[in-house]
Design a protein around this nucleic acid. Structure first.
Lengths: 190, 190
DNA sequence: CGGTCTCTTGACGGAGTTCAAAGCTAGTGG
DNA sequence: CCACTAGCTTTGAACTCCGTCAAGAGACCG
């Protein structure tokens, strides 16, 4: 699957050809190889990132020295460490490519200019953030009401294709359960 | 503590007196008594709500028929069920006053008009949502890395005043642990 | 084909839940 | 202003979900 960012914008706001050119002035496109990083711990997060193609993971290192995944980002999603971005503070996260990716990034300063020059983009970003909050509210509700087993079953039936795309220990980490227990659950469900 | 919404806006954007009047045209103010509702299950959430004074809780009823709190909103915070708001779908949540409250609400249509008439408010709402996402990211990180005991200690030391303000069983519900276990932890820490 | 990741298995232990009952507190009405 | 009641908090015992540890089996890559 491949999502062009301009297409994505135009699902939400109208943008003429000349406006699209202006938009392109403010964003940067880059290709990422598997395992390359967009953000590393202790660096300040300067940008928001849009995945046109591929898959990113966001994680931090916990007290035991183990990677703990908190978010994935697939085609068509924005991702950033907003705490670091807003406050200019060092991030505690890594954002890394799980697959080869096409990424569009926009940094803070350019974003500020962009929304002045193309005011309708402000609405686009507001909508993206609303969607983000809505998604988090939903996920958090599931976490509150489900056992880990139910959460796993829910996730694997909701995103069967995604399960094939990433290693199981990453799914386990994201779902907040041990790889061993995930393995046990898988056995039960086959 | 009491936060006037215009003051709050002016922390983020500039607003002349006449613009403030326009803003006031689009929002509604209301007083809530303890236990009154802003939103109930199966109704569509039409508005975003700002707490000028008081305290709200957002909760749903889980399978066992027990109230499960997912969010609190204190003075200076916006709250809404964004999934219901965006998609016009019935909400699964209740939003209820824990204390007597002063609430400012803005519905979807008025919000759309407002951001056209006062474009700088778009930036304000974008910032509020960014702050919301940042807060959720932070909270979710804590949930991943802490045991329930650590999470409780962290919460109670971070918000000692808030602990006094609401009943313990609500804190327990929000933290995702049983009232009995919370009681046990309290004993340990005294 | 050797070595490094990844996934599976089983035994064990502990954090946290559930249930039932008793002890408190605070609000309400008489 | 006191007494009653409903709601909140505490206790303790039994139980269970799920993590940890250790070891083995595949799978993938140079």
């Amino acid at each position: 699957m491949q999502i062009d960012i301009l297409q994505h914008l135009r699902k939400h706001i109208t943008l003429s050809e000349s406006e699209a050119l202006i938009f392109n002035k403010y964003v940067e496109k880059q290709q990422l190889k598997k395992k390359e990083y967009l953000l590393e711990e202790s660096k300040v997060c300067k940008s928001m990132y849009f995945v046109e193609k591929g898959c990113l993971r966001m994680y931090f290192i916990n007290k035991k020295g183990v990677e703990q995944i908190t978010q994935f980002a697939l085609d068509g999603w924005w991702i950033s460490d907003y705490q670091s971005l807003i406050n200019n503070t060092p991030s505690q996260y890594y954002i890394q490519a799980i697959e080869a990716c096409s990424i569009v990034s926009i940094n803070k300063e350019n974003l500020d200019h962009l929304v002045v020059e193309l005011p309708q983009t402000e609405k686009y970003f507001r909508r993206m953030l609303q969607k983000d909050v809505a998604g988090t509210q939903h996920r958090s509700k599931l976490l509150y009401e489900m056992s880990k087993e139910e959460f796993y079953v829910h996730f694997s039936t909701s995103f069967p294709d995604f399960m094939q795309r990433v290693p199981q220990y990453m799914i386990a980490s994201y779902l907040g359960l041990s790889p061993e227990y995930l393995s046990e659950l898988r056995k039960k469900k086959l």
